[in-house]
Design a protein around this nucleic acid. Structure first.
Length: 464
RNA sequence: GCCAGGAUAGCUCAACGGCAGAGCGGGCGUCUCAUAAGCGCCAUACAAGGGUUCGACUCCCUUUCCCGGCACCA
């Protein structure tokens, strides 16, 4: 049995879950369930990224200490995975000293042993107003754009990673297709970025500036910066650095990392370079999704267009929310989600379409049958054709098209019933088993492990 | 500015060098098993200009507009 290891990115816990992360979880879940259907031994990982100055500050703002703060928020992400019925095997937290820290430390040692880390003075532009270092690109006319002040130059000692050494290796690796980036235009972005030349990146921060993080092994005045911390979750979760290599040996390398477009570079450049340096195997592919907007605009509190995934799940149920995200947001493009659109899709496609189909069939079946045997069906050929298209679409990560395939069967079922009028005479005898066959297949296509309808409970009841 | 992608029906998206498709929404009609659901029919679209071609929405050029990338914010 072949294995399949897939991961989402780990969510940064400076704020409660966003629908964007719900999207990523759902995309991963489709792939995980599909792979299981194929008989693969699947391991699906998600989790939370919990270190960094931003979180330390966010914690301070709420008067909590960082550990307490991240526990709270991380829990809401874990709750989201349950609420959405995500089939993840594990949930890794970077603040987990037992599970994650040994892996990050081990990675650091491996990098250090390979000679790819070195200490260097770093001249940072520090804005007192922001209490943070600024990149040149953050400045307007040499001033901090938020505080209209000139940042001061602060010299600090950092460890640097020799990313520049990996420029040619990475380029070759992508040319040879060792790691595949989906969609293709993201691959082009990465290639172009590498061709522009890679500079070494800073891999640590002084402990005094960043106490909320993992200490550099053997040099406790420094904290491991995000790269060698967060990215390592993909292997620390499997036991890397913990002396427990069973999962790691079995599942690494990752078959698929699912990420948002905002963190592509880290996954396509820094992470593979780290793995090369540490002499570990490289992930096989990276699927890059877009961002969800609401009403054509970025979601923001001030616009009042923020969508809370929990609110939608409460109202419509996990299946409906999953359906929306996968069907309405093209997998690798930006999408749009509004509460109105959610309501429309729910009522027209799920309640009126599938829910009602099941209800009308169940009502007739109950009246006219003691039991139903489904052997052959006039829908067999159609269903097989749909399975074929659907499989192709899932393999190509076109979840929206795959769902469209499934719903063409719903329409077909409804049309057939109208034509055959199973409520008249004894037409039901042949008609109902045919439609039941259809519905069973729709259930499988929607990857419901146990498709069933509970008597007296409507599937996708109408929601006001 | 540089690099890349896009502009197709009210909305979200397809397709194709030779009569432009789907879903949702809208209009009209209709069945009554069903969740005031279903089914049928209809309407509306190739950003603008030029070129290549027997023929272009599809290929090329120009213009306009939109979006993404151009490193330490995760």
């Amino acid at each position: 049995m072949s294995k399949f290891y897939l991961t989402t990115s780990i969510a940064y816990v400076n704020a409660p879950p966003h629908v964007g992360f719900a999207l990523e979880l759902c995309q991963g879940d489709v792939i995980a369930r599909y792979r299981k259907l194929l008989g693969n031994d699947v391991y699906y990982l998600t989790g939370t990224d919990e270190h960094g100055q931003k979180i330390a500050k966010a914690a301070e703002a709420t008067g909590k200490d960082p550990a307490e703060f991240v526990d709270h928020i991380s829990e809401s992400f874990r709750a989201l995975t349950s609420a959405l019925n995500i089939s993840n095997n594990d949930f890794i937290r970077t603040s987990d000293k037992n599970k994650h820290w040994p892996g990050a430390s081990e990675m650091w040692r491996a990098l250090s042993d390979s000679g790819t880390l070195y200490k260097k003075d770093y001249n940072g532009l520090y804005c007192e107003g922001c209490e943070a270092f600024k990149a040149l690109s953050d400045l307007t006319d040499g001033m901090c754009s938020d505080h209209k002040k000139k940042p001061e130059i602060i010299k600090e000692e950092n460890y640097f990673f020799r990313l520049s050494d990996y420029q040619d290796k990475l380029l070759r690796l992508y040319e040879e297709g060792v790691i595949k980036i989906i969609p293709e235009h993201r691959q082009n972005e990465v290639n172009n970025f590498i061709k522009q030349g890679l500079e070494d990146v800073s891999f640590s921060r002084p402990r005094k500036d960043l106490p909320w993080g993992i200490p550099v092994p053997g040099d406790e005045d420094h904290t491991i910066y995000v790269w060698a911390d967060a990215l390592v979750n993909y292997i620390s979760a499997l036991g890397y650095g913990r002396g427990d290599s069973e999962l790691f040996n079995k599942f690494w390398p990752a078959d698929l990392h699912i990420i948002g477009k905002d963190i592509l570079r880290f996954h396509a450049i820094i992470w593979p370079a780290m793995l090369l340096a540490a002499e570990l195997l490289l992930p096989k592919s990276i699927l890059v999704h877009g961002h969800i907007q609401s009403g054509g605009q970025k979601m923001s509190k001030s616009l009042g267009n923020v969508i809370d995934p929990f609110e939608l799940i409460d109202k419509y149920g996990a299946d409906a929310v999953r359906y929306f995200l996968l069907k309405e947001i093209p997998t690798t493009q930006d999408g749009d989600m509004t509460k109105e659109r959610m309501a429309d899709i729910y009522s027209s496609e799920l309640a009126n379409g599938l829910g009602n189909l099941v209800a009308r069939v169940a009502a007739i079946a109950e009246k006219k049958f003691d039991e139903i045997t489904v052997s052959n069906s006039i829908f067999k050929k159609n269903v097989e054709a749909i399975w074929k298209k659907y499989t192709e679409n899932i393999e190509n990560y076109k979840f929206n098209d795959a769902l469209q395939n499934v719903f063409s069967l719903v329409r077909e079922g409804n049309t057939y019933i109208d034509r055959e009028k199973p409520w008249e005479g004894d037409n039901a005898k042949n008609v109902i088993p045919n439609v039941v066959y259809l519905i069973i297949n729709i259930g499988w296509l929607l990857m419901k492990q146990k498709p069933h309808v509970v008597k007296g409970e409507a599937l996708f009841p109408r929601v006001q």
